[in-house]
Structures are given as C-alpha cells and as structure tokens.
Simulated scan of single mutants.
Amino acid sequence: MSSMTTSPTTNEDVNDSPKAEDLLRILESLDALVYVSDMHSHEMLFINAYGRQRWGAPNGRKCWQVLQDGQSGPCDFCTNPQLLGADGHPPPTIVWEFRNTRDGRWYQCRDQAMQWHDGRMVRVEIATDITERKTLEEALKASNQQTRKLAYRDDLTQLPNRRAFFESYRKQMETLTPDQPLALVLIDLDHFKMVNDVRGHAAGDHVLKVVAELFQAQLKPLDILCRLGGEEFALVLPNTSLPCATALAKRLHEALRSHTMEYAGQPFLVTASLGVAATTCAEADLNDMLKAADRAMYRAKAQGRDQVCSEALSSQNESRPE
C-alpha cells in the first residue's frame, strides 16, 4: 500500500512579489500620465509611455520644460512645497485639478513625495485626463445659471419677475443702513383688460413691452423695476425718500401718459395708477410697505385713475379700497 504526500503551499508560491520589469510594464500600460521629478532640481527622472506620446521624452529637461508651455522656471501652481511636512516627511497624497498649458486639456493630479532609489526626494504624479467630465460640469453650470436667470426674469418684458422683486427687496434691506430711506412704487395699468379684449392679446403684450422700455428709460442704474404679473409693475428705490420717489413716479406717469401707443397701424393711449410708499430701512418691513403702496395705488384708482398717490409708511392696518 503506497501513500501520497503533498508539499505545503507557501504565500511566496501563491503571490510572488512583482519584478521590476512587471511594475514598469504596468506603468507603461496605464491610460494616465505618470512621471517622477527631482523635488529640488525639478529634473524629470521618469515619464511613462502615455506621457511620452503626448509631451515627448525628458532628455534631461525639467518637468515644467516637458509638460508646460511658456515657462521660464518652476510653475506657479507647483505643489512641491506642500508635499513635504515641517518634519520632512510626506503628508497624504495631494489631489488637485488643472488645465494643461500645452494641450489645453483638464487633468486630475495625484501628487506625493517619496524617496528615490539613490536617496533623494522625488515628486510622483499621476494625472488622469478629465476633460470630458469638466466639459459636462461647465455645461451643467452654464445651464444652471441660465435656468436661474430665466427663473428670475419675465419672458415678455425681460424685466425681473415677481420672484426677483422679493429677492431684490431683501438684498436692499441687507445693504442699506437702518437710517437710509427705501421706497416702493406699485404701478397698475388702467383698463388693461380692455386693451386685450378690444385689440387682442398680442396688442396687450406689445403695450407691456413698451411700458417696460418707457419706465426703464427714466430710472437710475440702482433702481429696480419688476413686472409682478399681468399689468402690474413694482419699483424698488434704494436710498430714496418719499418726496423723491413721488417725483419719480410722476415722471413715469407723465412719460406713459404722453406716449402714443400704436399697434397694427392703430394709435391709442394707455395710462396707469401709481402708489408710492417709503420709510427708513429700519422700518421697511416688506409686507407693511406693500400694503402702504397698495393703499396709495388703489386710492389713485378710486379718485379717477391716471394719477399718483403716496403714503408714508404707517402701522395702521387699513383695508384696501376696491
């Protein structure tokens, strides 16, 4: 009877340590730049096949001479100073992104310092092309900005919309000092429904655009004209007292009153009722300001329309005239 014996399997047999040529083969096959440069002289000591195909062989050159354009010395964005701690030991890998000056493509870089075989400290960088990702990110950012712009813009008049009005008012409250005045003007076009009913909605849209242009021409850069919706506009006037805001409202009223509208070859006039409210920023609660300006505007309507009425902000809770 015979017996069979087997030799024990060791870790070395199962998982032999990779040889230098195997490691080099791995580096040469990577779809990413890998290079090594002297931390002090910046001489490039190694660059893999990916890098050589795009930037050429080092041939004794500095890393910035191989990889960058227009450099007369080390790159301003070089991470070498960050790769060694105060105790001389390397910190964890530094990950950063930049756009290469030679090929114009974006790369995510992973940099680390290590000791070279001859004892000097070297920088090892692995750079992966992320251009497609960056392109998508930038397109998404532009799309988000455009979406936000549209969300705060009235399509017809291109004025800030109702949402932008509330945001603008809030920003003015944060910007002005408590003792500075803040005014609000509400504007409602008189008998606008009749324009739509008699002349058509296209004529009504034309009127709204012309009104926006007429009013904008009378305003200062810091004045904020918004379309709240329908035929109603609002005007936020930072650092403007009630007399000054009322004077401006009268100029807007006169500019509209004296302008002859024309649509489809037919001339016609449009008027508006304007309500003005103002107080100091410390007391300029938006709800109170809206109520005061609204009361003044409806007083203008109750008195025959086509005029300007104003009201100093009051804590009284008056009902709005119908």
Rank of each mutant, 00 (worst) to 15 (best):
G60V: 09
L30W: 06
Q218N: 08
G275Q: 04
V66P: 01
K19T: 13
T10L: 14
L290Y: 03
L83A: 07
L159I: 08
V198S: 12
Q115M: 08
V236T: 11
G119M: 08
T5L: 09
C78W: 07
A32S: 15
R110P: 00
R305Y: 09
V14D: 05
N161A: 10
E21P: 00
L256A: 05
E138Y: 06
H201L: 06
A302P: 00
S3E: 14
T280D: 13
G200T: 10
D285N: 14
I26Y: 13
E125I: 07
C63G: 05
A245W: 07
G229L: 08
F165T: 01
D306P: 01
D288Y: 01
A312P: 03
V66L: 10
L189G: 01
L274N: 01
S314T: 15
K250L: 04
N15R: 14
T147Y: 13
V195I: 15
N48K: 11
A277S: 15
M261V: 02
R110L: 09
R320Q: 09
D31E: 11
S168T: 13
D205H: 09
S168L: 10
W55V: 02
T279C: 15
A86T: 13
F98H: 12
R120S: 12
L186A: 01
A32G: 03
A278V: 02
E167Y: 05
R102S: 09
I126L: 14
R148E: 15
H191A: 06
L225K: 04
M173S: 12
E137R: 05
G70C: 04
L252G: 09
H206C: 07
P91C: 11
E262G: 05
M289W: 05
L274R: 01
W116N: 08
C309S: 08
A203W: 07
D190P: 04
L159P: 00
D197Q: 12
T79E: 06
C226T: 12
R52H: 10
R163C: 06
T175H: 12
A57E: 15
V95A: 11
G265H: 11
G229T: 10
S37N: 11
R163L: 14
A127Y: 03
V207T: 06
P58S: 15
I26H: 04
E167T: 09
L222A: 10
Y107H: 09
G73C: 03
K291A: 12
